[in-house]
């Protein structure tokens, strides 16, 4: 029995160690490898609190182990009555005072960083984006720039970008773990938060507040590019010609179908403020379809044919005439050719 238990313990410990070592999580998704202002702040506090907490835990477990080894009832002690100790003032004061000190050690840096992260004094001189959470996608409106986009948020590296976050329906929560902590998107007020990424790259964003069946599928991306690339992107996006007719015949047919099926009632191309559905500007450069599928024509066709099977409860299902595979394919071709900028997710980090 005891040998078997020993082996089990070794196995559990080893598999646990392997787990910890192998996985800090996926790069640009995990909060354990921070690459932005808020995430780094959080990491600092986490490390500090873990040091404090683990030391307390070690002390507790040390006493616990001694107690269990030394004070077990031994054979022949059945009638032994230990001394009935009422308490000990010195000890009790010690284990009240030390935790108070430890709490102070944690409280001071926490309060300082809470105020630091809530500072919005530099907002007027920086990039400001209005972020709107919708069931189940994110809309981004670059304030003062006439740029509307959805799902992929382009920001310049090493610069505080101020996000004015709200919701158009239920509560969502905007979270890009590797760059920053989260803040809720509420229907009644605008929450302002800044994010600053220290490295170029494409970062995963998640919705962190239960918002309906497809809560877990409400992913988005933050594309962090150099300042020059960002400026170029802004120029490109400001000059999108929404009426531009594609060269390719299939795509032309797709554009006609797009218009004939009244897709424009919800989706805009260009800087139109219509945002009942995601803005489709620069769709060719999207990192994903519907936030979760690989960007490919097949996936786009699959989405257009039956969005419900991909994102249950989405608002697109049933709100447009059903499409034949050919029609869906043409529309997909059209959308996948909406290439409005030289700055793409591939620019990030290159």
């Amino acid at each position: 029995m005891s040998r078997w238990m020993g082996k089990l313990k070794v196995f559990v410990l080893l598999s646990f160690a392997a787990l910890v070592l192998s996985a800090c999580g996926k790069e640009n998704l995990t909060a354990l490898d921070p690459k932005g202002y808020g995430a780094q702040d959080a990491m600092n506090i986490m490390v500090l609190s873990i040091i404090v907490m683990v030391s307390v835990f070690i002390i507790v477990m040390l006493i616990y182990t001694i107690v269990l080894i030394r004070f077990r009832q031994k054979k022949g002690q059945e009638d032994y009555i230990p001394k009935q100790v009422e308490g000990n003032h010195t000890l009790e004061i010690v284990w009240t005072a030390i935790p108070i000190l430890l709490v102070l050690v944690l409280a001071v840096p926490t309060v300082i960083s809470v105020f630091d992260l809530a500072d919005t004094t530099e907002a007027s001189s920086s990039v400001n984006v209005e972020v709107t959470g919708n069931q189940y996608w994110w809309h981004f409106n670059y304030e003062g720039e006439e740029i509307q986009t959805s799902q992929d948020l382009y920001i310049p590296v090493n610069q505080k970008v101020y996000l004015d976050i709200q919701s158009s329906d239920v509560i969502h929560s905007f979270w890009v773990p590797t760059i920053s902590g989260k803040i809720d998107a509420n229907p009644e007020n605008v929450n302002t938060m800044f994010i600053e990424a220290y490295e170029e790259g494409v970062y995963w964003g998640k919705c962190a507040e239960l918002c309906g069946p497809s809560h877990s599928l409400m992913d988005f991306k933050v594309v962090v590019v150099s300042q020059e690339e960002f400026d170029a992107w802004v120029e490109d996006m400001k000059n999108v010609d929404a009426e531009e007719v594609p060269q390719d015949a299939v795509a032309q047919e797709g554009k006609e179908l797009f218009e004939a099926n009244n897709c424009m009632a919800c989706h805009a191309i260009g800087s139109s403020p219509v945002a009942t559905g995601p803005n489709l500007t620069n769709y060719a450069n999207r990192t994903s379809i519907a936030g979760i599928l690989e960007p490919s024509k097949e996936n786009m066709v699959e989405w257009l044919m039956d969005p419900e099977s991909i994102k249950p409860g989405n608002k697109m299902t049933g709100n447009y005439p059903s499409l034949s595979e050919d029609e869906a394919s043409s529309i997909a071709e059209y959308l996948m050719q909406l290439d409005h900028s030289e700055t793409t997710p591939d620019s990030a980090g290159n």
């Binding site: 808020g38 959080a42 986490m46 609190s49 944690l106 926490t110 992260l117 902590g181 989260k182 962190a208």
Partner: peptide, 15 residues
């Protein structure tokens, strides 16, 4: 206590 450190809670919260 770790959750109470608000800055880090912005990461922990709702996860």
């Amino acid at each position: 206590v770790m959750l109470a450190t608000a800055t880090a809670d912005y990461q922990y919260h709702d996860t």
